[in-house]
């Protein structure tokens, strides 16, 4: 019974947050306006005739909220997965160089093709490439030990960070550079349904894969030797976890740029709330990550008429909240 209500909360919370997000924004819309607009689903009616309220709800707030939920969920869940896999509660999606690889790929695409459209596949490919490089460096000593993998990730991250700086250096300061910088900062501002469809594929595959394999993440966090002795095909399972987590992260980075902090804070909040069992932690983090990013995005939209990049807000909101939680739980047990 307890478990049923937990899962009900896990499912309902993001839906409530999405609805909340539909009701809030710079443009003043009352609850009845929102409900009216929601009543006219544009799929089977001509959407041009409904006017501005309809556009705001269906073209601006809803895609944004959905995308925010997906990105938040992806970053949080892959954070949990990487933490479990590397047996280190302080790693996040950034480890293995996924974010910096994807960031570099996107910047390179903007530099080469002068359009942000090419950034999507490039971010994905380079995010994957970063993981492969980290993995190969980790294999130098013919082991897949976590420490070597993390070290490989650190090396790859810094190489890609340097390459990114170089791309920024040679980019056109008037046209390309602002695009690259804003892309890297992360924004859901231009969310469209097509983004949800395109980037949704890698994100969904990644998250569903991690949900499916979440029990094995528990066992993998016992370390390679014990996991194998417990019957896990460690290299296969680790490969799947890394692949899925990378896919989810790179997909998220594709649509929203690099948003830091979520992959670290949300898993910890989850650990504090319901413990470390990934069977429950992964769905809960998914839900928390989705809610957190929707709420942060609401803030980013209503504080000013301008767009505040999400990375700034996730850090400003997530940081103090994290400190508060650490204090409340005395830091000892997550």
């Amino acid at each position: 019974m307890k478990r049923v209500s937990l899962y009900a909360a896990v499912c309902l919370a993001p839906i409530i947050c999405i609805f909340l997000s539909l009701c809030m924004g710079r443009y003043p819309l009352g609850l009845s306006d929102v409900m009216n607009a929601l009543g006219n689903v544009p799929l089977w009616t001509d959407n041009s005739s409904f006017g501005i309220n309809h556009t705001i709800i269906w073209e601006i707030r809803l895609p944004r909220a959905i995308l925010g939920a997906m990105v938040g969920a992806c970053l949080a869940v892959s954070g949990v997965a990487f933490q479990g896999l590397f047996r280190n509660p302080l790693v996040s999606s950034g480890i293995l160089g996924v974010s910096s690889g994807a960031g570099f790929g996107a910047a390179l695409a903007i530099l080469l093709f002068n359009t942000v459209a090419a950034a999507y596949p490039f971010a994905l490919v380079f995010g994957m490439l970063a993981v492969v490089c980290s993995y190969l460096i980790g294999r130098l000593y013919r082991t897949t030990s976590a420490i070597m993998l993390v070290l490989g990730g650190v090396i790859v991250s810094s190489v890609f960070a340097a390459l990114l700086s170089f791309v920024k250096y040679v980019a056109d300061p008037y046209e390309q550079l602002p695009a690259i910088v804003f892309w890297l900062m992360g924004s859901l501002a231009s969310a469209r349904y097509s983004d949800i469809l395109i980037a949704g594929i890698p994100m969904s595959i990644g998250v569903i894969g991690l949900l499916a394999i979440r029990w094995q993440i528990n066992v993998l966090s016992m370390g390679d030797r014990e996991a194998q002795a417990l019957g896990i095909h460690t290299s296969l399972s680790k490969g799947i976890v890394i692949f899925c987590a990378t896919l989810a992260t790179a997909g998220a980075v594709c649509v929203s740029g690099v948003i830091g902090w979520i992959g670290l804070v949300i898993p910890h909040i989850g650990r504090m709330l319901i413990g470390n069992d990934n069977r429950i932690l992964i769905p809960v983090s998914l839900s928390l990550g989705a809610c957190f990013l929707i709420l942060v995005d609401i803030l980013s939209r209503i504080i000013t008429g301008a767009e505040i990049p999400l990375g700034i807000l996730t850090a400003l909101v997530g940081g103090p909240f994290f400190v508060y939680l650490l204090k409340k739980t005395k830091g000892g047990d997550w």
Binding site: G25, R26, Y27, I52, T55, I56, I60, P178, V181, F182, S187, A189, R301, I303, T304, G305, A306, E307, I308, P309, I312
Partner: peptide
């Protein structure tokens, strides 16, 4: 005409703000 808010990051105007300006 009006303030775009406290912060102006990259001079970006939010979509809803632009709709408000109309």
């Amino acid at each position: 005409q009006e303030s775009t808010g406290l912060l102006n990051v990259n001079d970006q105007a939010g979509m809803e703000q632009i709709l408000l300006w109309n």
